[in-house]
Amino acid sequence: MSKAKLRSSLLAVLRCNTAHSTAINFPNVSNSALSSQLPSNCISLSQLPSTAECFRLWRSSRCECLNNLRFPSRVFSSRSAEASDLKLRCWNCGAAAPTSVVFLVCDSCRSIQPLDQSVDYFQIFGLEKKYEIGDVNLESQYKDWQKKLHPDLVHSKSDREREYAAEQSARVIDAYRTLSKPLSRAIYILKLEGLDVNEEDTISEPELLNEIMEIREAVEDASGSQELNQIQSQMQEKLNHWSNTFAKALRNRNFDDAISSIQRMTYYERVKEEITKKL
């Protein structure tokens, strides 16, 4: 097995482990080169890649990943030997990564770089890790990335690079979709803080439950599109309100309020969906 392949499978093992929340004993690793890598991996630990990502990695590294699961120590020792290679350099031409922009594509040789889970969605779009993103043009940046990363455009390249293209392109799609909507952006930013918000959580506040019932009835009883449109704009107002509340709570690092804002936003979004279906 080539070194590069081994490394990618090892990285995959790491991520699979984090996904399954297996305890990996990070502090045991004393190699300094490796510990310089640790912070980025720690972020990905708290990010908890979804099982979908894990599947992808599982597939890309075939069964080696599952077979190696039980031998993390061996994994680490062999990984540390290569750690010095892990400095951000283009895998193809060896050019150093730029410091100003996120390194998905090599500027010198246009090669697509392997997926780095420690890069968050905000970095992809050159944004600060903030909930309020103002009116930046995500769409055009998204398209610029796709022109560099989309698998359709690298057909003549190696298997390896085509795989990177598929992964990077899919991740940019996810990033764009997540950041372009306030609700998913809010959930994502909490996830970066290590908080997993469950949208399906039942609401227990009687006050809110009442409100939900009332709105639901109003939607059902609405006699025409005018009435529905009116409820629609009420929902939008509420969404704006709770979006602001969320932003404030996040600034003050008041995560309980942030989560409850998200739950409300989830609910109002659903009403909006229902209304759009009826309209």
Binding site: S50, T51, A52, F55, R56, P151, A166, S169, A170, I173, R177
Partner: peptide
């Protein structure tokens, strides 16, 4: 859903 796609 934008392709390529992966969901579970």
């Amino acid at each position: 859903t934008t392709m390529p796609a992966r969901k579970e």
